[in-house]
Design a protein around this nucleic acid. Sequence first.
DNA 1: TAAAAATACTCCATAGGTATTTTAT
DNA 2: ATAAAATACCTATGGAGTATTTTTA
Lengths: 302, 302
Amino acid sequence: MNLRDLKYLLAVAELKHFGKAAGHCFVSQPTLSSQIKKLEEQLGVTLFERNNRSVELTPVGEAIVEHARLCIAQVDAMVQTAKIHQDPLAGQLRIGAIPTLSPYLLPLIYQPLKSAYPQMNPIFSDEVTQMLEMRLTNHEIDVALLATDATGKGFGEIPLFDEPFWLIHPPNHPLHTQDVITLTDLRELDMLLLSEEHCLSRQIVEVCQLDGPRRRDELRAFGLETLIQFVSNGLGCTLIPALSVHGGRMTGSGVITRQLDSGEAVRRIRLVFRPNFPRRHALEALAEVILQNLPNTVRCLA
Amino acid sequence: MNLRDLKYLLAVAELKHFGKAAGHCFVSQPTLSSQIKKLEEQLGVTLFERNNRSVELTPVGEAIVEHARLCIAQVDAMVQTAKIHQDPLAGQLRIGAIPTLSPYLLPLIYQPLKSAYPQMNPIFSDEVTQMLEMRLTNHEIDVALLATDATGKGFGEIPLFDEPFWLIHPPNHPLHTQDVITLTDLRELDMLLLSEEHCLSRQIVEVCQLDGPRRRDELRAFGLETLIQFVSNGLGCTLIPALSVHGGRMTGSGVITRQLDSGEAVRRIRLVFRPNFPRRHALEALAEVILQNLPNTVRCLA
DNA sequence: TAAAAATACTCCATAGGTATTTTAT
DNA sequence: ATAAAATACCTATGGAGTATTTTTA
């Protein structure tokens, strides 16, 4: 059986005339007649009671036509759905971001993205790198905003920008009087870190060349904002990514925010995706919107 | 687009493997691959994100598959419907009967018909001949039980039986003492008739060779039972068809029921249908059930 | 390297066309 | 006589096959 046959069926059912129905379907009358006949043979029932004057549906025909109508309606809906999504920028784009980036980057890009690509339906989520990679693999998200290289794991990437780390310390800290802060200064500090599933804590250990994570068990910070509260209460120092300095609610918290002198103390933020993700253009559009809306505290890569 | 393609789509969506899906559809892997590819080209969207390790639906693919599933479900339902109706005896059979026959014949055949052909779904209606003929022409009913010839109007017929007319008169009527009643006796009687759209009244005029319908305007009987009440109240006599004698509620009504001596005083009951009605077997089955369940007051024709 | 999808090509079933016949009013 | 569907027969599109290549994990 064929969808074309069902369309012929509906045409004859509506027009009650083989010749007119054939014209309506842009085929010849014998073509349509033979297809209807074949359909009747396949179904094993007479669909139309016909003579040279009239064509009428049989009761079975009525029931069959009702099904055919619903079937064709589904096909039409399907084609419509496809048409809406033909634009690779249209439709859902499920975007995951790491928790130390997400709350600071998303507010910067949400409105610009909506304005530039109103047909895009971005769905945002936050999770740590490992979870995002798993969800990418499982097709549960389409793209991840990560601060670590994932090309070695079989993903593709679009590098976006380098985000410097800034030091924050309590107001009464010894560094308060020091103008320039170098990487070596950091090794001596009482550095507070997030739990180690956050890539940020690993990167701080690396940047500062700490002997190992000196995380203090009594201080479990689940988010950057909590960590900042710890610093403001004089419990230690930490490095935070640049976007969180202006995006976060730092003002009035009493912490001192210091730029570092080294251009090396950065993390590289990139879009990560399955290499055969079919809507590459949507990713490029997203990358473009992100790059156009960053503050100058970060260094764009494009 | 083709229903087969949609089935391929559903198979791949379910098995997430082109080779297995091809096996499931009893075609080769390249055949299925090329059809899926063609479908993607026709719809203008990528349905599957695939490499040599995994096949996953895209979000658009999910939406498309949902439509495809509903579409295929409709086709299955259609085939099921057809299968149920492949038996020409199965399904609706819309039967119309004239009002002077319907209430006496239907009780005789309803249960036997249900028992013999449980798959048949007879739908009964009563109307006068002219209306039934119109409904036949308009495909609003499938067969009519008439007492008049309709072959001249382009209908087909199956003759069933000849139904004798019986005389009914009030108890104190002069004929009470007369043993044998002939047709000529009837010409002298005060004959009550139904309104003239009933074929019965025309036939009585003909049988009795009355000069014309001597219907009395003050007595408008809309049904045979009303007419019998008129007779029982001594307002006149009438002829009633044999089936109404035993089928009707005559006992206790006080009327006298008399057989006529003539074998000519009958009406011929037949099944009437459109000549190209496709389920001739259903009509023959109906005819057979009717003939098998008639009382011996009528003369079967088969 | 191995598993899977994609490509190349050949074949044939069948949808589609034109010309004509049958049918029923 | 006429309008309409059915039939006959030819053509060509495209679905299906086998063999092979490409891809990528």
